[in-house]
């Protein structure tokens, strides 16, 4: 079974009297364990697609199924629960919670899931070690470099074993060296933990790392290339 199933997904944004067709009928299947990039120019609709898969935004028509859950018709609370259990997010601008330390940022998801304090702590520390941040777990985001912050974000996204991790331009704010280190780390997580990664990007390097490259243009799939 596929992890994500999109069928004829359409989305229109209205800005005043202007209508912007962000997605014009996207049909896409993403297999379990994928390490995949959605690429395309700005405004192509790749972020919109990512948001819809993550349940942050709703499609106007078409169906989206994530790990067996059909998203259409789910309420705000149910979508929140779905995201909490099945989806990890990594954002372009890291988006860590500034008042919490690296460890607490990672723990936060587990806190919402109701994991016991002891287990939270142990799992957070071990995942931070895996992403290469051992010893930095007590630092607040402001005391970490961009690359380190993004590693915390990845740790937060994968710590509770989600079905998919959605990463929106994860390397856009990083220099190429830090970016490739981060991608190496995520690839390792993908291979070792079998976590499905979906990136949206226009970074050549991310496309090179991906095992599958889906090109999006003008709200439609414009090419689907398996790599390697």
């Amino acid at each position: 079974m596929n992890m994500v199933e999109c069928r004829d997904v359409k989305k229109i944004y209205r800005q005043g009297k202007m209508e912007v067709q962000a997605l014009r009928g996207v049909t896409l299947s993403i297999e379990k364990g994928a390490f995949m990039a959605l690429a395309g120019p700005s405004g192509s609709g790749k972020t919109t697609l990512l948001n819809i898969i993550g349940g942050l935004d709703a499609a106007d028509s078409g169906t989206v199924v994530v790990d067996g859950d059909t998203l259409a018709g789910m309420g705000q609370g149910d979508l929140a629960d779905m995201r909490l259990r099945k989806v990890g997010f990594v954002f372009q601008s890291y988006n860590l919670i500034p008042v919490l330390s690296a460890r607490e940022n990672v723990e936060f998801i587990m806190l919402l899931q109701g994991v016991s304090p002891r287990e939270r702590r142990d799992r957070a520390l071990s995942i931070l070690e895996e992403v290469g941040l051992s010893g930095l777990h007590d630092r607040r985001p402001a005391e970490l470099s961009g690359g380190q912050q993004q590693r915390v974000a990845v740790a937060r996204a994968i710590v509770s074993g989600p079905s998919i991790v959605l990463a929106d331009e994860p390397t856009a704010n990083l220099d190429s060296r830090t970016g490739s280190d981060l991608l190496d780390m995520m690839k390792k997580m993908n291979e070792e933990k079998k976590v499905t990664f979906i990136f949206s990007t226009h970074d050549r390097m991310v496309m090179d790392y991906a095992r599958r490259l889906v090109l999006i243009r003008d709200g439609q799939v414009d090419g689907d290339h398996p790599r390697e």
Binding site: G54, L56, Q76, G77, A80, D81, M82, R83, L84, R85, V87, F89, F91, N95, I97, P98, F108, I109, L112, R156
Partner: peptide, 16 residues
């Protein structure tokens, strides 16, 4: 605002 958006994205229910 951004942070509350993030909390929601992470799966925090509105009531929380």
């Amino acid at each position: 605002m951004r942070e509350f958006g993030l909390l929601k994205a992470l799966g925090m229910r509105p009531l929380r």
